[in-house]
Write a protein that binds this DNA or RNA. Structure first.
Length: 659
RNA sequence: GCCGUUGUAGCUCAGUCGGUAGAGCACGUCAUUCGUAAUGACGGGGUCGGGGGUUCGAAUCCCUUCAACGGCACCA
């Protein structure tokens, strides 16, 4: 820095590779002006040696630069972040005494967390947005200042901004403390910002309010978070809002009701009432994954639902997982009207299984296993109950009773790699068949509440990362998100509005077999503990089906569709023929319905189209006479007329599962 | 669990100032036999989420409770 500032001239390299000389201390804005007036007008920030900076920042050394304009992808980040500052100023102007905390960008927008005695409501949005408009209209410049750390803490404390002061106190000692002014208002911020507030523009909208814990810690204060979105122009904003509207139409809860797939009700919150049509999809999913499991060498078992607390004590669930378990007193309840349910405090407890793993270990432990028996791949469509927090429940995606396509692989340590590979093969081929492309792999590492030594955790985490790397999988690390017994792979899929859910998972567990004393006899004749891999491909049938509904927007491919075709006679003249077709198709194991109602064909077509039935077989007098069917595909304009026999053979073929 | 919002017919929603509940779709009956996204007429349907209170009178005001929704925290 010192050496550079002595230099009077510096060389600036532009994106096209050309270099120009400037006086040291020249700013990005001055460079833009020297190139073209229009560029100076359009520039909103500068990328300095790969790092985004303010246009007003003096440059003291040779550098590669790129001027950022509004149409560049980076512009959205700047617009949104500046908009968050404008929001904060507006809120503090309108509601004095409100403390500001943090206000980062998120996907498609930003939020700002405020501390105020009385939370904001969406009704405050009108006034806040109006004030934001005023602030933008006024168009103050963003001015960066470097402050002394202690002065900054003192300043924010004196203003009653305790959260900001706390943030500064926790910053690393060598961190430069910068604040940005916009007119009379200022905020602690590392920047960068656009030249003025005016650059934010008008294409912003406050979206929702929500509570959020300070520092994401539920033992700390609840702040009020205001979410907003901001774009380059009105057209982009409108497009975004339209996208959200469209996404709402794909909501599995809405489609589930409309298509008659399932329902939920108060008395069984978090547990699903599967209707005939929904359960048809379930059965197809179950058949598919059962065939897959057989192909991949799994055995299938069934273990108890209700097991004594002593068992859960041994597995570690009683101490680490009990708050999520449904505990059932092992007592005969009082049947006297108006009396307490239990005469005395129950002493013995059973619990509904929250996981299948300890049960599978019991099966593994029956008899003596040799190293030659490993790996044992033990699968179960296990119905588990978890007492999830009320606020966590969400349609099919987060329930309290779920059926997992669960399996546990008991193997030797040196088999982990092959088993992980085999699982990845199974996962990839399955998700391909369901059309999920955008899956993110995360490696979840040790949580605070855990069992097992750090040495074992080191080994497990490394094993997972090595397996992923060896398989060519890119992954993110989700620190502290592991299960209490081991680290895991989480395969994340996004729902219609972009929330990410874990479906498939693979978890390494060196702990449970030791805890429950599962052993095999090794080549050396000695007892050894196997490693256990917990894994699921769908995750749970509930969540996977919910994700499928959203991903297909209810328009299931033929092999999954709850109703694959409706046979619709045009008039009663063709009714006998329609009945015959329906009978034949049902006998072929196809899921078909007959619509004999005395309604116009238009009406029938509209109704079944709205219900997203993939095919409608329209038959009138003509088809009955010729022994043909007119096949109308969902959303299609044209129909295909085929001979009945050919049509049924083709349909059967098209309707068969991909595996 | 925490913060906010919402709860009226099967669904989507209206209901003003507190005066005893309404529409469209769906459903039922009748008529219509109509060839590719809504045929017409008539009819039935609600303890206004539950409980309590204020009031001559509550869907409407107050308290409480439950659930759903959006987040947070927690997790397949």
């Amino acid at each position: 820095m010192l050496a550079a500032s002595k230099k009077t001239e510096i060389s600036i390299t532009l994106p096209d590779g050309n270099s120009r000389s400037y006086m040291a201390g020249t700013t990005g804005m001055e460079i833009a002006e020297s190139i073209a007036k229009s560029l100076a007008k359009a520039a909103i920030a500068i990328e300095l040696n790969g790092k985004m900076c303010d246009l007003s920042l003096p440059i003291h050394a040779d550098a590669k630069i790129r001027l950022i304009k509004r149409e560049d992808p980076e512009a959205l980040e700047l617009i949104r972040h500046d908009c968050a500052h404008v929001l904060a100023e507006a809120v503090q102007t309108l509601f004095p005494g409100t403390q500001v905390t943090i206000g980062p960008n998120i996907e498609n927008g930003f939020f700002y967390d405020f501390a105020r005695n009385q939370p904001f409501t969406t009704e405050d949005f009108v006034a806040i947005e109006k004030k934001m408009q005023e602030i933008i209209e006024r168009g103050a410049s963003f001015e960066r200042e470097v402050w002394d750390r202690n002065d900054a803490i003192k300043y924010f404390r004196s203003k009653g901004e305790n959260y900001k002061a706390e943030i500064i106190e926790d910053l690393p000692a060598d961190q430069t403390i910068t604040i940005y002014r916009q007119g009379d208002w200022l905020d602690l911020c590392r920047g960068p910002h656009m030249p003025t507030v005016k650059h934010v523009g008008n294409a912003f909208k406050l979206m929702k309010v929500a509570g959020a814990y300070w520092r994401g810690d539920s033992s700390k204060a609840m702040l009020t978070r205001i979410y907003g979105t901001a774009w380059r122009d009105q057209k982009e904003l409108d497009a975004h809002l339209h996208l959200l509207e469209e996404a709402e139409k794909r909501d599995h809860r809405k489609l589930g009701r409309e298509m008659g797939l399932f329902h939920l009700q108060e008395e069984a919150q978090g547990s699903v009432f599967w209707h005939d049509k929904g359960f048809r999809i379930w059965k197809v999913l179950e058949g598919y994954i059962r065939r897959k499991q057989e192909e991949f060498g799994y055995i299938e078992v069934k273990t108890p639902q209700l097991i004594h607390s002593k068992f859960w004590e041994a597995s570690g669930h009683w101490s680490k997982y009990r708050e999520n378990m449904f505990v059932v007193p092992d007592v005969v309840p009082n049947t006297e009207e108006g009396e307490k349910v239990f005469k005395e405090d129950p002493k013995e407890f059973m619990a509904l299984k929250p996981m299948n793993c300890p049960g599978h270990v019991q099966i593994f432990k029956q008899g003596i296993k040799s190293y030659r028996d490993l790996p044992v791949r033990m699968a179960e469509f296990g119905c588990c109950h978890r007492n999830e927090a009320h606020g966590a429940l969400h349609g099919l995606l987060r329930v309290r009773q779920m059926t997992q396509d669960d399996a546990h692989i008991f193997c030797r340590e040196e088999q982990i790699f092959d088993e992980a590979k085999l699982f990845l093969d199974m996962f990839v081929s399955t998700y391909k068949d369901f059309g999920f492309n955008d899956v993110v792999l995360k490696v979840a590492t040790r949580p605070e509440a855990r069992i097992g030594s750090d040495e074992v955790w080191d080994k497990s985490e490394k094993a997972l990362m090595d397996a992923a790397t060896a398989m060519g999988y890119k992954f993110e690390i989700a620190a502290g998100d592991g299960a209490f017994y081991g680290p895991k792979f989480e395969f994340h899929v996004k729902d219609s509005i972009g929330r990410s859910w874990t479906c498939a998972t693979l978890q390494i567990d060196f702990n449970l077999p030791v805890r429950l004393d599962a052993t095999y006899i090794g080549e050396d004749g000695q007892k050894h503990h196997p490693v256990m891999l917990h894994r699921a491909v769908y995750g749970s049938f509930e969540r996977f089906l919910g994700m499928l509904i959203e991903s297909y927007a209810g328009k299931f491919p033929l092999w999954l569709a709850p109703v694959q075709a409706v046979i619709a006679p045009i008039t009663s003249e063709a009714a006998d023929y329609a009945r015959e077709i329906h009978k034949q198709m049902s006998a072929m194991g196809l899921r078909v319905e007959l619509d004999e109602r005395n309604e116009k064909i238009n009406y029938k077509i509209r109704e079944h189209s709205v219900k997203k039935v993939p095919y409608i077989f329209v038959v009138g007098a003509r088809e009955a006479a010729d022994k043909t069917v007119a096949i109308r595909e969902l959303g299609g304009e044209n129909q295909k007329v085929k001979g009945l026999e050919e049509a049924l053979a083709d349909f059967k073929k098209d309707a068969s599962p991909p595996f």
